[in-house]
């Protein structure tokens, strides 16, 4: 079945089993491997993408449900790593193994789009569902605050 949606700013049509989770369509069908598989049950956040700006777990989102919607993956967050969250992540050198980070970044970007100056409690709430087995949590928290500052400063760090 043909399903059409907006993906990272462009129009995308895929012809797949409509029940296939968006995660596997992105990774296997479209080759966008920045979005990761971690649990397949909305328990870890590795597969987080944005659908119409909201952070969503793509492993439990049937591709048919995104028809006509706007999907953003880590590859589409910015063309040149200029998104405040990516800049803050680089400034804080957050990733260790890095596997969870696409999901962390997409969740953090969605938080900042809604809450310009998140508190520690806001950050915990928004990122509780994103597991990092390397334990980069302290750096993630610092980076989210920093991203908020970058954004408030009009993109200047």
């Amino acid at each position: 079945m043909a399903i059409t949606f907006t993906l990272n700013g462009g129009r995308q049509t895929v012809n797949v089993n409509p029940q296939t989770p968006l995660l596997w369509v992105l990774r296997d069908t479209l080759g966008l491997t920045g979005t990761k598989f971690g649990c397949g049950m909305a328990l870890c956040g590795a597969c987080t993408v944005q659908i119409n700006g909201n952070a969503v777990r793509s492993c439990v989102t049937q591709v048919s449900s995104v028809a006509g919607k706007t999907v953003t993956t880590i590859e589409g967050l910015s063309a040149d790593l200029s998104h405040p969250v990516q800049r803050a992540w680089m400034a804080e050198d957050v990733p260790q193994c890095g596997y969870c980070q696409s999901g962390q970044i997409m969740a953090a970007a969605s938080l900042l789009a809604k809450t310009a100056k998140p508190t520690d409690a806001d950050i915990s709430e928004a990122l509780r569902g994103n597991i990092c087995r390397c334990g980069t949590y302290a750096q993630i928290r610092r980076a989210v605050h920093r991203a908020a500052e970058i954004k408030a400063g009009g993109g200047k760090a």
Binding site: I74, E75, V94, P95, G98
Partner: peptide, 13 residues
């Protein structure tokens, strides 16, 4: 870090 922040880092999977 850059590759891991842009989604470009290639993991086994």
């Amino acid at each position: 870090t850059r590759d891991k922040v842009s989604g470009q880092a290639k993991f086994g999977i």
